[in-house]
Amino acid sequence: MIYAIVNIKGIQFKLIENKYVYVPRLSTTSSKIGDKIFFDQVFFFYKNGSYKIGYPILKNIKVEVEILQHLKGDKIIIFKKKRRKGYKVKKGFRHFFTKIKVISFLDK
């Protein structure tokens, strides 16, 4: 098994080869569905019983991923109320996500 801990938009994700991951929306102008992009901020890399730890990142390892889909998450309801004052506010919010698939790890 091969996996890596990678920084994507300030959040750390564990990426495993040929698995799908939902990450915060990658910019839609530069990344279209089907594009292959590289993540180079790798903190930890594991391959066949051996591992490498970055201080803070590993410079010679990149992760190649393919963008599969841009989508919205489930709706979150924000409800505010002050009792006995007649104040009620109800709002909704949906996060934007990008579904990616890990293709390969480039280890030099």
Rank of each mutant, 00 (worst) to 15 (best):
V42G: 02
F96N: 14
A4T: 02
K9P: 00
D107G: 00
V89N: 14
I11A: 10
S50I: 12
I5A: 10
I77W: 01
E66H: 00
G92V: 10
V89H: 12
G54P: 09
N7I: 10
F105H: 09
S50P: 00
V63S: 07
V6K: 04
K72M: 12
Y55S: 12
I16H: 07
D35C: 09
G34V: 07
N60S: 11
S30L: 12
Y22F: 13
F93E: 06
L58F: 07
S50T: 13
F38W: 08
D40A: 08
K47L: 02
R83N: 14
Y55N: 14
F79S: 08
I103E: 10
Y51S: 09
Y46N: 02
T98M: 08
I76W: 01
F43A: 03
L68Q: 03
K32E: 09
I57M: 06
V89W: 00
F43W: 01
P56H: 06
V42L: 03
V21L: 08
D107P: 00
K101D: 02
Y22C: 10
V102W: 05
K14Y: 06
S50F: 09
S104E: 12
V42T: 03
I61C: 04
P56G: 04
Y51M: 10
K82S: 12
M1R: 06
S30I: 10
K81D: 01
H95L: 11
Y3K: 11
F97L: 15
Y22T: 02
I2Y: 11
V65E: 08
Y22K: 15
S50L: 08
R25F: 04
F93T: 00
F79R: 12
D40W: 05
F45T: 03
I57K: 14
M1E: 06
F45W: 07
I78R: 11
T28P: 02
K47R: 11
F93Y: 15
Y22R: 11
S31E: 07
Y87D: 14
I57N: 08
I2Q: 15
M1G: 15
R94K: 15
G92M: 03
V63G: 07
K32V: 12
F105G: 05
K59I: 01
V65P: 03
P56A: 04
Y55C: 02
E64C: 13
V102N: 03
K75S: 12
Q12R: 13
Q12T: 07
F44W: 02
S27H: 13
Y51F: 15
L58Y: 03
T98I: 06
S27N: 15
I57Y: 15
E64I: 01
F97H: 08
K91Q: 13
K62L: 06
F105N: 10
D74T: 09
Y46G: 01
